[in-house]
Design a protein around this nucleic acid. Structure first.
Length: 421
RNA sequence: GCCCCCAUCGACUAGCGGUCCAGGUCGCGGCCCUUUCAAGGCCGUCGCACGGGUUCGAAUCCCGUUGGGGGCACCA
């Protein structure tokens, strides 16, 4: 039988990074097996907030490239079906009314067990499982009833979810058996923690997929990084493309122990992916990111600066601070210019008539000028860097000068010389 | 309180009884390269939570302890 899995986020807001990881495992499994990956929204009302949250969740999934099969479904749409099943359960004596609600009669003796793909056999004594409410007194089915029923109706073969659902599983198992349906295979993936070992939350930094996007991470980075949280194909491989991930993924290799979200490693990996990008692609992504984040910078200029920054930034969001001097005036700090007067003057003189005004020639001329003043390159070029880029850290000085052009370069050097003197 | 899950370097992990005085990656430290910052190259630091078993042999299996986490709603 073909594999079918689902991700079932509740429309409470943005797509949480932990949910995204669970979605990724489901998607990887489905694609690896040639099965289906469904999107089910576990809503309980139809408010406008819900509609927006659904859009947001879908945007995030699309950005990550986690495409789902068929139309997404809403839990709310199956309320009536759930009620009918509950009534039948009551008629069969498997459930009973309780103050207007309907409760499921859990077995009192023995135990409920399943073979979890990532944890092995899990067994729970039935006497510890309460009679759960199936339908509230206002007629709405509860999560522990609606969710397994939808899994049955949708023909879900594997339920891959966070291990915070382990204690729900025996309840859902008994309900599914009571309606005479076949139980799916369960795989409980470990949770994601923040750097302090606590549940990932706001204070750890970004936690919604959308926030990572705004922070300038690439979707391929997120996919690769998230896949490695709780899963590894072997002990060596770290960087894997989407296709390689699909090819190598298996539920059996998912680890049962929780993992911490390491932002430093994420930054490193994003740098790897940025450097691997073809230049035009990198430039394109910079332009897109800038546009999405309120920078109205000339796309052509951005493209020309791209080769100067590709090796040096870890996130797209580093670009404005690193290359902003190409797009606006600079204000070099007087302290950083201290002692740079002679070199600034020498640079102004040599660059004024230099032909051609290109990086290679600029470098040769400036090295000669530094030599003439008896300065080491390190001492000589730093005041120039401050003057031209306004910062102690920048893209290559000579390439930057070429891009800026003679006029801007010279005027910035003159302005700095005035401050330094 | 009760139930369940988890436990290898600071982090992510490999390891599924001998090939491990534990390997890879990030981070960290040092060196090299160098116009800054990165990148890159080289070297290094750091770990099987603890206690009992089982076995000729345990990071690997079993039990317990400790520590962490999740759940016990007419939330999802």
């Amino acid at each position: 039988m073909a594999v079918r899995v689902r991700i079932a986020p509740s429309p409470t807001g943005f797509l949480h990074i932990g949910t995204a990881r669970t979605a990724l495992f489901n998607w990887l499994f489905a694609r690896h097996e040639g099965g289906e990956f469904r999107l089910r929204i576990e809503n309980t009302d139809t408010s406008r907030e819900v509609a927006e949250a659904v859009d947001q969740i879908q945007d995030s999934l699309r950005w990550l490239g986690l495409d789902w099969d068929g139309e997404h479904t809403f839990q709310l749409d199956r309320m009536d079906d759930c009620r009918k099943v509950a009534e039948q359960l009551v008629a069969d004596g498997k459930a009973y009314s309780d103050d207007g609600a309907i409760r499921f009669r859990m077995p009192n003796e023995g135990s409920t067990a399943w073979d979890d793909v990532v944890r092995g056999r899990v067994e729970v004594a039935n006497e510890t499982i309460e009679d759960v409410v199936l339908v509230r007194s206002d007629g709405r089915p509860t999560y522990n009833f609606a969710s397994p029923m939808e899994d049955v109706w949708d023909g879900i073969t594997h339920v891959i979810r966070g291990d915070d659902h382990i204690s729900n599983t025996p309840k859902q198992l008994n309900i599914i058996r009571a309606v005479g349906a076949e139980v799916p295979v369960y795989a409980h993936a470990p949770m994601l923690f923040g750097t302090d070992g606590k549940k990932l939350s706001k204070r750890h930094g970004a936690q919604a997929v959308e926030e990572f996007r705004e922070a300038g991470y690439l979707p391929e980075t997120m996919l690769n990084f998230l896949a490695l949280l709780g899963w590894a194909p072997d002990g060596e491989t770290t960087i894997m493309s989407r296709d390689e991930l699909i090819e190598r993924f298996s539920l059996e290799r998912v680890s049962p122990s929780p993992s911490q979200f390491d932002y430093a490693k994420l930054d490193w990996m994003n740098g790897v992916y940025i450097r691997e990008l073809p230049l035009e692609d990198f430039a394109h992504r910079l332009v897109l990111w800038l546009g999405e984040n309120g920078y109205e910078w000339d796309a052509e200029l951005v493209a020309r600066t791209a080769p100067l920054v590709q090796e040096k930034i870890a996130k797209l969001s580093d670009y404005p601070g690193f290359a902003g001097f190409f797009f606006g005036d600079v204000e070099p700090g007087a302290a950083d210019l201290d002692g740079g007067g002679p070199m600034l003057a020498a640079a102004e003189e040599t660059l004024a008539s230099l032909e051609p005004f290109e990086a290679e020639a600029i470098e040769a001329a400036l090295r000669a000028a530094a030599d003439g003043l008896g300065l080491k390159p390190r001492q000589a070029f730093q005041p120039l860097r401050i003057a031209v880029t306004g910062s102690r850290v920048s893209p290559g000085l000579f390439e930057s000068m070429e891009l800026l052009g003679r006029d801007v370069t010279l005027s910035r050097i003159r302005a700095a010389a005035a401050v330094a003197a």
